[in-house]
Design a protein around this nucleic acid. Structure first.
Lengths: 331, 331
DNA sequence: CGTTAATGTGGAAACGATTCCAGTATACCA
DNA sequence: TGGTATACTGGAATCGTTTCCACATTAACG
């Protein structure tokens, strides 16, 4: 591989001149520039990025940590992050923790060694203190979702409360009152939105309509829900499921039992997975702006790196969108 | 940030000695080692990775390019790659091309600048020549899926032909003879497997049963398929869809028209998406070893990097697995 | 007891860029 | 005509490691 010295020799100038040409800094005559550029082309020269980075003390690298990018949520966010990071000439190094605290810590330490310029982290199991240490060393940090207040990280959030609110409000506006909610252990915010909407519309939620058999496959497949629904004297006329997969599971089970959506029961999901638009006349659901989420966070991070400013404890919230399809109708 | 010189001074030794301790190379006395390690800890020293890499001429970085990691296929593969790459102390830099030739080329050039040690690429639109050039410069390359013969890349493949074969054979063994196949423009291999199985079992495929309305949403939703199926004098008793999403679409449509799976029609999908096990009694499908695919390719690449051996034109094929669930039964 | 081998250590030269400084040539202005 | 600003260039230091070489010291051995 040709070095800057080779180029310099070939062009009959000093290495510093080559550097000036390539970085467009300082004075270079038209003629010298031409000669240098020609030599660069002839030798097929590319600067050694390690030397560059050693000298300038920057790494032009952003780290992005996710818990599980097999999860479509993170995959979409990663797309957004990747796009802006590369557009700005940075590398994106990716790390999947699988929720393992060991890996979290290993990642943080690794990033310190690698002197990344910035990093985007999700909620961590442990490791907040270490992350803060990274921040203190001048590595820009942005946290996705939620972070302990006391560290003052910049936090980007998608408003899940509002998502839950929108879904529930939609059903309420259609005249439904007995609205079931299927929750999971990680969906407290969506549940809060559900309750806020109910309250706002003057309906006190019937606690027997809130399903909590967290992550049981019978729940995902809708068996429990539908069984209990059929048992009720006064069954719900609408169901809001914490995600689309569960909503579709419920839908399948309802049909198995001879109930029709939306004629007998209205159904709302959450996430807007690709299949949501394919089932029957489509599943009404709440879409989160994943891609934009990643973009915005990455843009913010890059700006902070450029400005060399530290964490400010700012927080940005992005809004979900209600997508009305064929699974809901007036009560 | 503390440097190796700081550590050396604090421990009262020379930088070279510190280096020897840290890299466990050459002779170091027990006592010196202790002192150096203590100093390292006290100063919270981490070696500067850029200096390291500049000096050693290695980057400890692997690039992984995918067309679209929002696609669960690639997300899974990425998981596999990521796991082994990190386990071996390498960085993974990730690039999503979205099938854009511009981005392909930009990535390849970028990797040259960044002096990655190795790269894993999918099928490219263009850019094969540039990739070959990278290979010639000593960057280890592995291609996923398929590559032009003439370049002699090492290629890793998942056997889609066999997948198609397994699915079809399963139906044939259940006694089905009129088996429809729903294809897409990128599923020629699966179709070949379908035809191979039919031939093997002495059944000549009825070309009216091969659906080719590529990627039309009506096809995905199963409308065309079911409509045409009902029109036939001698309708198929089984359907093999090129992927699970389409299979489920067909399933939905069949039910809408009053046909039952598997009682009236057996159904086989492809991919084994999470929802495949949730629909009714489950969708019989073909699972591809995505994660293992990524792992194996990455392990292979790392081994080649360690051995400093170039491409050899080898090719490794990984086998799919038939997963029998409730959507198929004897004819 | 002299010779050779095994340990242990420090000094200094790379690696390949950027950047500061000094120096020269030309242009401009009073 | 002399002084100063502007344009242009080369030399050398520097970033923080690794690694080669030289030099001691100690151990082993015939």
């Amino acid at each position: 591989m040709a070095t800057i010295a080779d180029v310099a020799k070939r062009a009959g100038v000093a290495p510093s001149t080559v550097s000036r040409v390539l970085n467009e800094s300082g004075y270079v005559s038209k003629e010298t520039r031409r000669r240098v550029l020609a030599a660069v082309k002839e030798l097929n020269y590319v600067p050694n990025v390690h030397a560059e980075r050693l000298r300038t003390g920057t790494s032009k690298t952003i780290a992005f940590v996710v818990t599980e990018f097999t999860n479509p949520f993170w995959a979409e966010v990663a797309r957004g992050v990747e796009d802006v990071v590369w557009q700005n000439g940075y590398d994106l190094i990716l790390r999947n923790t699988a929720g393992d605290p060991e890996r979290e810590l290993a990642s943080i330490r690794g990033f310190r060694r690698r002197q990344v310029d910035g990093a985007i982290f999700p909620w961590l199991q442990e490791g907040w203190a270490e992350l803060k240490a990274l921040d203190d060393e001048g590595v820009s940090i942005v946290v996705l979702g939620h972070a302990p207040e006391e560290y003052g990280f910049d936090v980007f959030t998608i408003d899940n409360v509002r998502g839950g609110y929108l879904a529930t409000e939609h059903l309420l506006q259609l005249g439904h009152k007995r609205i079931a909610f299927i929750s999971a252990d990680f969906t407290r915010e969506r549940e809060r939105g559900y309750r806020m909407a109910m309250e706002k519309y003057g309906v006190t939620p019937d606690e027997t309509l809130v399903f909590r058999e967290y992550a049981a496959p019978e729940l995902e497949r809708g068996e429990i829900v539908v069984r209990r629904l059929l048992d009720q004297d006064d069954p719900p006329t609408a169901i809001f499921a914490y995600n689309d997969v569960t909503a579709i599971g419920v839908w399948m089970e309802l049909e198995k039992q001879g109930l029709r959506v939306p004629d007998d029961v209205s159904l709302v999901g959450f996430d807007d997975i690709p299949m949501a638009s394919l089932i029957r006349n489509g599943l009404t659901t709440v879409a989160l702006p994943h891609y934009e989420y990643g973009r915005t966070a990455a843009e913010f991070l890059l700006r902070r790196i450029a400005e060399r400013s530290g964490s400010s404890g700012r927080s940005v919230t992005m809004q979900p969108e209600l997508i009305i399809r064929g699974s809901t109708r007036p009560c």
